[in-house]
């Protein structure tokens, strides 16, 4: 495979909680993103996905571990070197446009990131903005509107346009479509897929909708309590996922054909607190297949098939 574009090795991030305890939001997370590929990241609320994204975007520094961009370490970048690196990796949030200044018109807002890199005249920026709108399939007459007068889906396209302004190689999407209705979501994903093909963009896509993640990702990484528990080609998610947590996730998905009377069985057992990480396997307090050694030894990550790794004593 070609050289990986963004890589995290052993990324660990700890926070201090108000009660003085230490919480490990990410623990030795390893992750590789290849050119032109989409990696989906899923996992329970609070398992560290946004923390991971913030580290990859260099908005937060890892306490341990290393970050590499095109094979070169970028963990220690600071000041001007970090500023020059920023255009390569851009982010879209759940409502990126909520971050737009309310009094800024669309043309100004989408080209705002350009200001600190390229001195452009107002006319040049408007021209750039028009090109960006076209790329995200928004009508050019939006240039002089205000973001808040647009629908959620349109605003999210604006967020993408702004992220693309600096021609990044990597786009990090943290629940970028969660706020949108299904058809708008579908259109936005289609847009991302076509942008990816045209520009060989690499995308990291964090999202709770397993079917959606699967539909646009090449690979999927499943996190639980700050660690990666399974990684596999997304086409094989439903059929081949073996980690008991991944299987639990798949069972919790509602489908249009779930009978209304069917009992819903969310994972049983208490979710462990990240300030009190259980010894051994992080999932053992809720795992239906737990064995003796699961509460004592942390399972190593093993390769079970090409491109498919899992951290569980059963494999």
């Amino acid at each position: 495979m070609s050289e990986c574009i963004l890589e995290g090795r052993g990324l660990t991030r700890r926070y201090r909680r108000p009660d003085g305890r230490t919480l490990t939001a990410c623990r030795r997370v390893g992750l590789q993103l290849f050119p032109g590929e989409t990696l989906g990241v899923v996992g329970e609320s609070g398992c560290g996905k946004s923390t991971l994204v913030r580290m990859l975007a260099q908005l937060e520094r890892p306490d341990e571990g290393e970050l590499l961009f095109q094979g070169e370490t970028i963990t220690g970048l600071r000041g001007e070197a970090l500023r020059r690196h920023r255009p390569h990796v851009q982010m879209i949030f759940q409502d990126s446009a909520a971050a737009f200044f309310p009094r800024m018109r669309v043309w100004d807002a989408v080209t705002e990131p350009l200001r600190s890199f390229h001195p452009l005249s107002r006319a040049q920026r408007r021209e750039q903005a028009a090109r960006l709108l076209e790329r995200v399939e928004l009508p050019v007459d939006f240039l002089d509107r205000y973001p808040h007068s647009m629908s959620g889906g349109q605003r999210q396209r604006l967020g993408i346009a702004r992220a693309l302004a600096l021609e990044p190689e990597v786009l990090l999407c943290d629940e970028a479509t969660s706020a949108l209705d299904v058809s708008t979501q579908a259109q936005l994903v289609e847009l991302l897929v076509s942008l990816q093909k045209k520009q060989n963009l690499s995308i990291l896509f964090v999202c709770h909708d397993l079917a959606l993640v699967q539909s646009l990702s090449h690979r999927i990484t499943v996190m639980y309590l700050g660690t990666v528990v399974e990684s596999l080609p997304s086409a094989r998610l439903a059929a081949d996922a073996v980690h008991p947590y991944t299987q639990g996730l798949l069972e919790a998905v509602f489908s249009l054909h779930t009978p209304p009377g069917k009992a819903i069985a969310p994972l049983s057992g208490e979710a462990p607190s990240p300030t009190h990480r259980p010894l051994g396997c992080p999932f053992h307090t809720r795992c239906p297949r737990r064995m003796e050694r699961c509460s004592a030894e942390e399972p190593p990550t093993t390769v079970v098939a090409p491109g498919h790794t899992v951290a569980c004593h059963l494999y």
Binding site: V182, S183, S215, L216, L256
Partner: peptide, 29 residues
Amino acid sequence: DREHLLRSEEPYTQQLLRSVPDLGGMWDV
């Protein structure tokens, strides 16, 4: 009710139902 919607002939309802991603994939990525 649910049965009504799943069988609805209303074009917009059908369009909504078609946009629901299913595990199995819908885009050629």
